[in-house]
Design a protein around this nucleic acid. Sequence first.
DNA 1: TTCCAGGAAATGG
DNA 2: CCATTTCATGGA
Length: 295
Amino acid sequence: MKSGHVPASSIPGEIDLRTTLESGQTFLWQPEDGSHGLDAGSEGEWFQTIADGEVIEVSERRGGLDWRSTTDPTATLRARLGLDANLPDIRNAFPDEPVVEAAKDRFTGLRLVTEPVVPTLFSFILSAQMRIDRIHRLVTDLREHYGDPIEWRDTTVHAFPTPERLARATERELRDLGLGYRAPYVKATAELLRDGGVALDSVPSMPYEDARDALTEFVGVGPKVSDCVLLFGMGFEEPVPLDTWIQSAIAEYFPDAQRGSYGETSRAIRSRLGPRPGYTQTYVFTHLRTGGSAE
DNA sequence: TTCCAGGAAATGG
DNA sequence: CCATTTCATGGA
């Protein structure tokens, strides 16, 4: 086992690990004590994830991050947790709106992540009409049933399954895991990835709205799920996924941005959330989902 | 029991 | 093109 430290001085604005990892952006991390939720602080708490067959664990320490891993995860952590982003600058560019100010005051170290795209794609296909804790449970179940095992400190950690393995699962097996009507979506999208039916590699260089349309070629991916994949798995900062929480936030706080279609409402709300609409959205979503308001 | 969850696909106009 | 209906599952 290797271990090391990412100093606070190299993380402009620092990071709140628990809020960032438990805010519904990613479902690939496990808190060491097994308790999900944003109530507890995360200082000293270990969070575990997987990356390319390696295990990574991180913990907040004096504003920086302690890590232990099967490899040196520094570059991976910087990319996935967005550690190079200048958080104070980003937050200062947020729009002057009461609900945004309230969210900013509550979540000082919340960062936008960029997680591996294939697990993010499947995670958000599963997310349709599901609560966040249950999405996390299903992603973990998929890993434990179909993911390659990795030995780590007297335990076995499972990677996220490959598209090849998910394509080989039967719809019945996936339904028995609790996926419901999303089971055929997962299988069909896995087959598209396995057979190269959709060129995922070309998407990151596309203009945002073209990229959003491109991902809807996968089965179970509409505009909202596509926005989540672009925002949390590909580094786009324009997307504002219009889920139930954000739609109600628009109705309450930005009623003049409501339009007749997803695409038009998306444009209207993006124009109201500052230079990085997706970053602003993550703050507002986390705030509202955990009982916040504009007060 | 009833309602709802980070929606998408199928159907009907 | 837009509006309505259907689709599983589990927790409150």
